[in-house]
Computed example of a mutant assay.
Amino acid sequence: MSDWERSSTARVTAPARPRKLAKVPFVELADGRLQGVVSSGSDIGRVYVSSVAVGTYAFACSTNNNRPCGGARGSFCKHIQALIGEAVLQYGAERVARYLKVDIAEGASSAPVITAQMTGTRPPQGDTAAAAPVFSRFLRHLAYLELAPTAAPLPEMQWFPPTRAVV
């Protein structure tokens, strides 16, 4: 059994390309959305929770205390554009486009191409109800980063069923 199988931490898939976490510290493809947390460009103490829905490209962007983003009125704001760019770095352009159901030409996949295809459809304003769970998961991830690596079990993870080694 390898070290990571005996560890209380999960193995993480390496990003498609290295990315800087200062601007977009959290990005995920989950719950039918590309969603994440984006730092404010003007206030170091403010973050935005941004999302784009699969297929419809409905978007939402608000601060961590549910104030709407001033730039997300009728089109993608800079936070959503940054989120898409970081998702492409994290997961690769093909995976992001496939997840969001964006039709792009093969070999022409990049964050600006994906964004242009989505904004060409005039996406509707989305629901900001997803902001709270996304921000909560982000805070949970931050808490795990503060833990020292250990092979000892984490009490809050004890509800996972035990796994057997596959031979």
Rank of each mutant, 00 (worst) to 15 (best):
R137H: 11
A129K: 12
Y144L: 10
G70T: 05
R67N: 14
E86A: 05
D127K: 05
A58Y: 04
I104R: 04
S62M: 15
G85E: 09
G55E: 02
P153K: 03
Y57W: 02
A82W: 02
G70Q: 12
V52Q: 03
L139T: 02
Y57M: 08
E94H: 01
A105M: 13
D103P: 14
A116V: 10
L154F: 01
R122C: 14
V54I: 05
P123L: 09
S136D: 14
V88W: 06
V52D: 03
T115Y: 13
Y144F: 05
Q125R: 14
G120T: 09
R98N: 01
A60P: 06
F76L: 12
I104C: 08
V113D: 11
S50M: 04
F135I: 07
P133G: 08
I80H: 12
L89W: 03
A116Y: 04
E94I: 01
L100S: 10
E106I: 14
T63G: 14
Y91T: 01
L83Q: 07
G85A: 13
V52F: 08
L139Q: 10
T63E: 14
E94Y: 02
C69R: 02
A129Y: 10
G120S: 09
Q125F: 09
P124W: 08
S110F: 11
A148I: 14
Q117M: 14
K101M: 10
F76N: 00
Q117W: 10
P112F: 02
V96S: 00
L100F: 00
I104T: 13
F76R: 06
A131W: 01
L100M: 13
L142W: 13
V54S: 04
A60V: 12
I114S: 02
A87K: 00
G126I: 07
P133A: 02
E94F: 03
P123E: 12
A93P: 03
L154A: 05
A148Q: 12
L142R: 08
T119D: 07
V54K: 08
V113R: 11
V88E: 03
S136Q: 15
H79I: 11
S62N: 12
A60L: 13
Y57R: 02
A131M: 14
K78W: 09
I104L: 13
G70I: 10
V113I: 10
L83R: 03
S51R: 06
M118P: 02
S75R: 15
V134M: 06
A93C: 12
H79P: 07
P133S: 02
V102T: 03
F76D: 10
N64W: 12
A72F: 11
E86T: 07
K101Q: 07
G55N: 13
G70K: 09
T115W: 04
C69K: 08
L147I: 04
V134L: 01
Q81I: 14
Y144C: 09
I84H: 00
A93H: 00
I80M: 07
T150S: 07
T119Y: 04
L147P: 00
E106G: 13
Y57S: 07
S62Y: 10
C77F: 09
A151S: 15
G126C: 00
C69Q: 11
Q117K: 12
A151E: 12
A97R: 03
S110Y: 06
N65W: 10
T119M: 14
L142S: 03
V88M: 02
E86K: 07
V134Q: 06
A116Q: 07
L147C: 01
R137F: 00
Q81K: 15
G92W: 07
R140H: 13
A53M: 11
T128R: 12
E106M: 08
I80E: 11
L142Y: 01
D127W: 06
